[in-house]
Nucleic acid binder design. Structure first.
Lengths: 254, 254
DNA sequence: GGTGACCCTTTCACTGAGCGGAAGCAGCCT
DNA sequence: AGGCTGCTTCCGCTCAGTGAAAGGGTCACC
């Protein structure tokens, strides 16, 4: 910036991005002062920059004075490539799974030490689900997370096992037990959770592979695993095979 | 900005946004010079700003030297509110439609004089479809577009009728005929197209209303309307009613 | 109706961040 | 070798950007 800045070296653009990235899953609407606080900017500076972001169509100001991400940013965001290909290929298979079981169906990839949810089909049933598309959750407490962790590089595994957060009373937080479970995931080809992320929700998940690498995971959330664990695993594996075939058909993805 | 700019009055942030918005449906990957050209910036300036956008996690540089929207921007884009509520409410009904018919199902709103596609479930059948989520198409050549146009303010209608672009040999480009069709849409409660946007694709669409206003449109794309037009219209209307009920249940939307 | 807490908005003098022409570099044609 | 296109770096000029300070508006609670 110019003149008497308190943090020389930082640029206008980086501050603008800090304002945009101040929004997250649990902060979809922010007031000016919240924005300034979260982006680490003085209030008048935030005021001016936010004004420009609104003028430029990146943010919208609600009547109440709260700011939200604008539709136009949603549109450009959808142009992000990596996920798009995988999501479009997986969509029909996810639809089949959803139609057959009426459960919540998830497509996720690993982003560092977190699961990133790429797609979700919500079940009609009243199973509580923590994930939302674009949201990140810990690897060790979700079905898709365990699948991805089981096939992650060693440094990610040790990093994750180093800080196992607790979400419910059933969350597994002993590294040794997780290692044991990961071994079983690799052997059996699927992972399960029982109320480890959300009470009242269990999950099953399988890997999606291409070229010998695990690139994503496909999972489902159900109220209980007692009855039809096998049926769900088979359905997931068939769907995952279908996605793999589509992926391989198109050559190495973007 | 500072110093000897060629366009005084424009700000760094607005230039940064111009770079982001240089991406669109048909330009998902851009080289530095394309970005500079599309954003209207001198090349060295674009070079510097794009570098900052990459450092800030808004863009990613591919090995080939092409830039694409980064995953992080996809994530914040998903936080845009207006659409999210409607999409989530409509999703289960769209799934039902899709399961029952196996056709492509669309959810769209009007954005100025264009249809903006909020959601799409792709049919397995090989019907060519032009729309993608986040994409904009003309109002007069699509089923959902005609529905939205039929319930749009007068100025939008006259504006749209003033420049009726042609997409295929079947596109209706005479204002009088479109007016006639819009009248019929309002009377019958549904709109149709026959290969007007894409050859080999027909469509049916119905409005989604809340509080007496048409806020969106629900549509389907099929190879032909001959056989089961009535069946499709009924299915769509049932689904649209369901969405309306959900909308009304939650009070005035976000 | 006073007081305090919270927002948001505007002002303004100082200055270094931003600018972009020019030049250099690398690849790829003919 | 010469021309073309596209990327990167340099560097001196200068105005866009900065943020403390002050102003205004709206609640709620005493």
């Amino acid at each position: 910036m110019a003149g008497n800045t308190s943090t020389p070296g930082s640029t206008v653009l980086s501050r603008g991005l800090a304002l945009l990235f101040a929004f997250d899953d649990t902060h979809r609407r922010l007031t000016l002062s919240e924005l300034a606080r979260r982006a680490g900017l003085p209030l008048p500076t935030a005021h001016r920059l936010v004004g420009e972001l609104v003028a430029g169509g990146a943010l919208v100001r609600r009547p109440g004075g709260q700011y939200v991400i604008a539709r136009r940013l949603w549109q450009v965001g959808l142009l992000a490539p990596a996920e798009t290909g995988l999501r479009e290929l997986a969509a029909p298979f996810m639809n089949d799974l959803h139609a057959a079981t009426r459960a919540t169906v998830h497509l996720a990839v690993r982003e560092q030490s977190h699961v990133l949810y790429l797609e979700r089909l919500s079940g009609r049933a009243s199973v509580p689900v923590a994930s939302a598309v674009g949201a990140r959750l810990p690897l060790h407490a979700t079905g898709v997370g365990k699948v991805l962790l089981a096939h992650a590089p060693d440094d990610v595994v040790t990093d994750t096992l180093g800080r196992l957060s607790r979400a419910t009373a059933h969350t597994v937080t002993q590294p040794a037990r997780i290692r044991e479970q990961l071994e079983r995931v690799r052997r059996d080809g699927y992972a399960t959770t029982v109320e480890e992320m959300t009470l009242g929700a269990c999950s099953v998940a399988v890997p999606i592979t291409t070229g010998g690498r695990v690139v994503a995971a496909l999972g489902m959330v159900v109220p209980s695993l007692e009855r039809d664990r096998t049926r769900l695993v088979v359905a997931l594996q068939v769907a995952a095979q279908g996605v793999r075939r589509s992926l391989d058909g198109l050559g190495p993805g973007p």
